[in-house]
């Protein structure tokens, strides 16, 4: 059954969370990335940044009403953790653009084998574009981690030889987590697979990918549990 070869969104988020180093400062974007925080081990003290000026936040405890002046980039209510700080938005973007975040975790429409990312517009005439903080995040973060479905709705590949949509940043993506694979972007060689979903063949993964895939020496088999 083809569907069984894809990992759930939650599992992709969990795999992403496992690779985040203790003590990291990270930014979480829209889409599957919003699921990543719940899989972060609190003992790792990973500090989440939200572009609207919050450093040190977590999901709102169920049952609490939330506060309109405490939201994240997805406009969800959040709460502060011990040690949190709140700054104005230009200082928040200095954290992003200035290289102070260890990683940004965001979705994308397309990623190219040279690390280019397209995430803000399909370029279609009636498309409503939206950049938000994405261009600043990818310009400055030490690692740019894309977490997304491997294929677009309709089945078009999203991991490309070259992006066809307008770019968000050039040569910036370092790692990609999808429902089919974990892929590192090597600036010299392109896409290097280091994990593949259980039951998925290399041929099937390549058929779902526009760009040629290389494989790490040690490729993990990614199981749902």
């Amino acid at each position: 059954m083809a569907a069984a070869k894809k990992l759930s969104r939650d599992r992709v988020a969990q795999l992403t969370a496992q690779d985040i180093a203790a003590g990291s400062y990270i930014n979480i974007g829209l889409g599957i990335p919003t699921l990543v925080p719940k899989y972060l081990d609190p003992k790792k003290e990973v500090v989440l940044h939200s572009e609207n000026g919050i450093l040190g936040l977590e999901g709102l405890q169920p049952g609490l009403p939330g506060d309109e002046d405490l939201i994240n980039a997805s406009k969800q209510h959040v709460q502060l953790i011990l040690g949190a700080s709140i700054v104005d938005q230009s200082l928040s973007f200095a954290m992003m653009r200035g290289g102070h975040l260890d990683a940004t975790i965001l979705g994308a429409f397309q990623v190219a084998m040279n690390g280019d990312i397209a995430s803000w517009s399909t370029g279609a005439k009636d498309d409503i574009p939206g950049i938000g903080g994405a261009m600043d995040l990818v310009a400055g973060s030490r690692r740019v981690v894309v977490v997304m479905e491997h294929l677009a709705r309709g089945g078009a590949p999203k991991l490309m030889k070259a992006c066809s949509y307008p770019l968000t940043g050039l040569g910036v993506v370092t790692n990609i987590y999808t429902d089919m694979a974990i892929i590192d972007v090597d600036p010299a060689r392109g896409f290097v697979v280091r994990g593949i979903a259980e039951g998925l063949s290399r041929e099937e993964l390549q058929a779902a990918t526009d760009a040629p895939l290389l494989y790490a020496d040690d490729v993990a088999v990614l199981t749902e549990h």
Partner: peptide, 22 residues
């Protein structure tokens, strides 16, 4: 906004958020 933009009745200058702030 979506209605006005698609009807060509509003001008949009789209600026990355950090650039807007700076």
């Amino acid at each position: 906004f979506t209605e006005l933009y698609r009807a060509g009745r509003i001008e949009l200058e789209l600026v990355p958020q950090g650039t807007l702030l700076e």
